[in-house]
Design a protein around this nucleic acid. Structure first.
Lengths: 192, 192
DNA sequence: ATTTAAAAAATGAATGTTCATTCTTTTTTA
DNA sequence: TAAAAAAGAATGAACATTCATTTTTTAAAT
């Protein structure tokens, strides 16, 4: 266990290296030695900051997810109308996924594989509460379809992950028009 | 290279074992020895059927993707109207993703990680052509929004993967009502 | 301010294990 | 009975993690 002494930067470098290597090579081809090298650190040093490889990946996931949700809800306030609030959050999320694509790719990989353990996954989900609250309000006001939050997420938010992954692979390039069209499709899918 | 002599069943068992183990443990924790054991085969035998581990996973991916698309387009005919054709294909896809969840989970994992190599991924995409043709027709007839096929896929088809993964993890259980609602959301998202 | 020694942080080089793949032998098929 | 298929054991590389030292930091004493 590390005393919180000196270097938050070293921890940060490790987290960043993990993101990059897992994105490019996959968990199975991202050895601790390579992560250490990319972070300019000895392999042994990793174990001063994290218990083991699983812990490193779990913590990376939670940290990235927090950054993501913090960004998504930064300018949101529950005093906004449901329609305005949704557009605001949706656009922040789109922004994050398309600009911080390293982080977003990492999340997509974690969310579709068993590399993260269950408790860490649960913790990640908890951060989305403000969006769920907004949806509840939307359903109460009959502005949003009365369907499960999973369906709402699948249709309103998750498509952005698919687009981001495609863009990242160079199959597709997203411009301002696409964003507007995507927003429209998201809203059409969930509005009453 | 295997002579096509005796056992297609042994090859099949290997493919199935790969799907199950990669689903449950991830590529990184699915060693050849475990795959062999689950398929009731010696590790050395794998190499009579596949060049190496990468080849095994690539071939598994292509095989599952083919099964998936064959199922999706089974009852489709280009003589149907765009609306009917889309509903038909969409429902077949939903059916596949929710009933053959092992296969669908495997595809979701491959589509969001770098475990499959680029040529195999490309080959997987090619199988979707009938759906792209339908969408082209839909756009020409102004029945479907004039937006990129990637956007259409992201909003009309991909959400099913998200729902399937959530269901598979036991977070959410999909019933007939959900399917109808999901179909409606998909159509609302892409129809003009 | 400078010195000093104890504690913390960091390191490179082991360690022991696990794994993909190959080798040699045995079994099955034609 | 020869060729193909399959097997189990062997091989060597790669890996996660630990170990034994060295370097850096902290702060108490001068």
């Amino acid at each position: 266990m590390p005393k919180l002494q000196k270097s938050i930067q070293k921890r940060d470098a490790l987290i960043r290296a993990t993101i990059t290597l897992v994105n490019n090579d996959g968990f199975h081809a991202a050895p601790m030695s390579k992560i250490a090298k990319m972070a300019n650190v000895s392999p042994a040093t990793i174990y001063l900051y994290f218990e083991n490889k699983q812990d490193l990946v779990n913590k990376t996931y939670i940290e990235v997810k927090s950054t993501f949700t913090a960004y998504a809800f930064k300018t949101y306030s529950p005093t906004l109308s449901v329609t305005e609030g949704f557009e605001l959050i949706w656009k922040r999320i789109a922004d994050f996924k398309l600009k911080q694509c390293e982080e977003a790719m990492f999340l997509a990989q974690c969310d579709n594989t068993p590399i993260i353990d269950e408790p860490s996954r649960q913790e990640g989900i908890r951060h989305l509460q403000p969006l769920l609250d907004l949806w509840k309000r939307g359903k109460d006001e009959s502005v949003i379809k009365p369907i499960s939050d999973y369906l709402l997420y699948a249709y309103a938010i998750n498509p952005l992950s698919f687009l981001m992954v495609a863009q990242q692979r160079g199959e597709f390039s997203i411009d301002k028009t696409h964003i507007e069209a995507a927003y429209q499709a998201a809203w059409d899918a969930i509005k009453v």
